[in-house]
């Protein structure tokens, strides 16, 4: 009798679980699982975006990008961009967050926080347009300042050798505030008494940072690294507005390549194949980041 009762309540619980989880599950299927499956499916076909005619081509689209030198360059650009962006952003975010966290000048702190966070809430297109103007080689503000100081003009976005770093700097400027906030939140969870114990142990400041602070906030650092890496693999709007992948493909990145194939060259099959490559790369990168950091990250 008891067994029957329990199984009835178990059934009710299971039903409740299904009912409450289903809206999220349905949304996930419609907007994530289905598009991924369709992406993979569509990467096996040729045909334009507007025509209903599709032809099964197997892995031809993959072959095309595999032998496309532009794709190689794009892949390399994306990796370079990601490494530079994530590296610079994280180092800056940690330095600024540690400084803000240690500073006792509340008013100054609030002002700095507001200043570095503001770019994060401005639209990427607006930021791109403003920086296009600031970095304009002849009449831009930056070069005006450089020449007024008696220095040489810097080509910024107009030269293949400096375009990528210019793009990275703009993106770091825009995003660093967000990561500073995340790191600061993590820093504030470190109990003051641990720092006091370190002080009593006569620990030099640098050693305190590397041996105590950094390990204590390592879960947040890993999280921000993963999020920043994924975001930088998907960089598109800044490239589209500021450089259109140029000059000479020096800032052409994976998502811009996908966009160009799908909407400029009218070849969604190849775009989808590149999309699948992006998906796989992001998965591998995230997996590697978690794997490499497994022994370095301290979860409490």
């Amino acid at each position: 009798m008891k067994k029957k009762e329990r199984s009835a309540s178990e059934k009710r619980d299971r039903l409740l679980g299904i009912v409450t989880a289903s809206p999220a599950a349905i949304l996930l299927c419609v907007f994530t699982v289905y598009p991924v499956i369709y992406l993979i499916y569509r990467s096996l076909f040729s045909g334009s975006l507007i025509s209903t005619k599709k032809e099964f081509v197997g892995i031809d689209n993959y072959k095309e990008i595999l032998f496309d030198e532009t794709f190689h360059k794009v892949l390399m650009n994306t990796i370079i961009y990601t490494v530079l962006f994530v590296g610079l952003t994280m180092v800056l975010a940690i330095i600024i967050a540690v400084w803000l966290n240690g500073s006792r000048q509340k008013k100054l702190n609030n002002m700095v926080e507001a200043c570095i966070f503001t770019p994060h809430v401005i639209s990427m297109v607006s930021v791109s347009i403003v920086f296009l103007w600031l970095m304009e080689p002849d009449t831009g503000f930056f070069n005006m300042v450089l020449t007024s100081l008696g220095l040489d003009k810097f080509p910024f976005l107009s030269s293949p050798s400096t375009a990528m770093i210019s793009l990275v700097l703009v993106m770091v400027w825009k995003s660093v505030g967000y990561y500073v906030l995340l790191v600061m939140a993590a820093l504030q969870t470190v109990p003051v008494s641990i720092y006091e114990a370190a002080e009593l142990d006569n620990t030099p400041k640098i050693r305190t940072f590397f041996k105590i602070t950094l390990p204590m906030i390592s879960p947040t650092i890993l999280f921000t690294c993963v999020v920043a890496s994924i975001a930088s693999f998907r960089i598109f709007d800044a490239v589209n507005v500021m450089t259109q992948g140029g000059p000479v493909d020096s800032t052409n990145t994976l998502v811009y390549y996908i966009y160009a194939y799908a909407f400029r060259y009218g070849n969604p099959g190849v775009a989808c194949a590149a999309g699948v490559v992006l998906l796989v790369l992001v998965c591998i990168m995230t997996y590697v980041q978690f794997g490499v950091s497994r022994n370095k990250v301290h979860y409490q």
């Binding site: 008494s193 641990i194 006091e196 114990a197 009593l200 006569n202 041996k211 105590i212 204590m216 301290h298």
Partner: peptide, 18 residues
């Protein structure tokens, strides 16, 4: 504090968790 030749036990122990 580190050079006063003292040692302290804290209320919450303040051990280094990592």
């Amino acid at each position: 504090p580190g050079k006063r030749d003292i040692a302290m036990v804290f209320q919450n122990y303040a051990l280094y968790p990592t």
